[in-house]
Design a protein around this nucleic acid. Sequence first.
DNA 1: TTCAATCGTTCAAAAATTTAAACAAAGAAA
DNA 2: TTTCTTTGTTTAAATTTTTGAACGATTGAA
Lengths: 112, 112
Amino acid sequence: MSELTKLKHEFANSSGFLIALGDQKRQNIIIALMEPKIILRGLQVTDLIDVTGLSRPAVSHHLKILKDASIVDYRREGTKNFYYLSHKNTELNKLRALLDHTAEVIKCNREI
Amino acid sequence: MSELTKLKHEFANSSGFLIALGDQKRQNIIIALMEPKIILRGLQVTDLIDVTGLSRPAVSHHLKILKDASIVDYRREGTKNFYYLSHKNTELNKLRALLDHTAEVIKCNREI
DNA sequence: TTCAATCGTTCAAAAATTTAAACAAAGAAA
DNA sequence: TTTCTTTGTTTAAATTTTTGAACGATTGAA
């Protein structure tokens, strides 16, 4: 399989992550979850409604997208769900690798 | 300005790039422009219609998004427009910096 | 048990994005 | 000049994404 074909798959594989990160409302959720006092404990959906100014279904929807992209995870405590930034940086590292590969392929192909 | 506020601006600033990269049809255009024989000369809109299987207005639309995100650039030759990957990797490097900052802030804030 | 709080989901409406048809402009070729 | 090629744009339709109202489920507390 050619380098370019591999790269194509890598791009397709990161689509969900890129789309999830591109939206400003989801960016705001991510930023809120990065606060020092929040990052370990996480935030409830109700808190995120206040933080973002969105309705609950909207927040749930965006959290689902972030969850599917492995950007956030959650923990149940009774009826409460605490959402927090995923402990693993897998997707972030995948994107980093993708950017590196892209730059590399561009560099090489320019020399040919 | 706090680190988190800076990061928020960085994210907002990369929205266009992230959204542009997230779409698979635009990814296909980018990949096509990376081919060794293509990368220096670029491709015409007509060529990209064949490559992507999209209509001309659709290709034009996606090229505009890629152009606005500084991912592609173009050169006129008569009536022909040759689109090529932008020589400057500014946006790519911005995104790399953003990912680095994000990982750094997460790391620091987890320690507090 | 009953009540209140938290949350996800469904479904339809609203908003945004993407696409195609039709049109117009600019340069090259006959 | 006239014709052909290449391209961008406009407008409306199609599609996708996002949102809100209403509903139901689960858990803890009274």
